[in-house]
Amino acid sequence: MERLGHLISAYVQHGRCHPFCFARNGSPLSHLFFADDLILYARADIQQAQIINEILSYFGAHSGHRVSKPKTHIYFSPNSNLDLQQTISSYFGYQRVESLGKYLGIHVQHQRLKCADYDFIIDKVKIKLIGWKARSLFMAGRITYAKSVLSAIPIYFMQTFHLGF
């Protein structure tokens, strides 16, 4: 997988692959890896789709790895043309989705977050509290347990989200 990352970076450095910028003056992002998962970011146009296909085909030919079409999804910005979305989706044969859903237990967000988007964190804490058999613990044990278990839940999500209200 590291070789695939180098291949994508080489295409970006040579100006063939155009990464995506999430903010006007933000750093461009072409890909993200986690274990054997890959998220590719690119402009929604036919040339970029062909280049991505070229990269994946080259890597597959040399490594023996292949993209699993049933497990692969393609997400488009709401600003992209619907006909272009259909053309690119058909070209790849990947399922087009309106949202990428969850990845490693965290929602992949596509818009500005609202306070209600964090309700799932409070729900997770409530579920933990309901499941406790706290009556069997002394008060000091309950406090220690609460500090160690309950504080870990929001900390995990704070690694990826800025929880500013």
Rank of each mutant, 00 (worst) to 15 (best):
P70I: 07
A146F: 05
F33W: 12
E2F: 09
L7T: 07
G131Y: 11
K124E: 15
H18I: 07
D45G: 07
L100E: 03
G93N: 04
E2H: 10
L38H: 12
A44R: 14
L163T: 10
L137A: 04
W132V: 00
I143M: 06
G15E: 11
G105C: 07
S9D: 12
H73E: 12
V149R: 10
F138Y: 15
F20P: 01
D119Q: 11
S27F: 05
Y156Q: 13
L163S: 02
M139T: 08
H62N: 15
H6N: 02
K114T: 08
M158G: 10
I74C: 02
T72E: 08
R66Q: 14
V67T: 11
I8Y: 01
C17R: 07
H14L: 10
P19K: 09
P70H: 03
P78V: 01
R142P: 02
N81M: 07
V97F: 05
R112C: 00
C21E: 02
C21L: 07
S27I: 06
H62F: 08
S27A: 09
L150T: 02
G93F: 03
V108A: 03
L32M: 15
I130M: 08
I143R: 01
F161Y: 14
H62C: 13
H62D: 11
L163M: 08
F20W: 13
M158F: 14
H110N: 12
L40Q: 09
Y94K: 09
F22N: 05
Y91S: 12
I55Q: 06
R96T: 10
G131E: 12
G93Y: 00
Y41Q: 10
S89A: 09
I55W: 10
V108F: 01
Q48T: 07
L7W: 06
H65P: 11
L100R: 06
I155H: 15
K114G: 02
L32R: 06
Y58M: 06
H65D: 02
L150S: 07
I122L: 13
H110I: 13
R43M: 04
Y103T: 03
D45I: 08
K71A: 10
S68W: 09
Y75G: 00
I46A: 15
N25H: 15
V12P: 00
I52L: 05
A152M: 14
P19E: 09
D37T: 01
I55D: 01
L40G: 06
W132A: 00
Q86L: 04
F138N: 15
A146L: 09
G26T: 10
A140P: 06
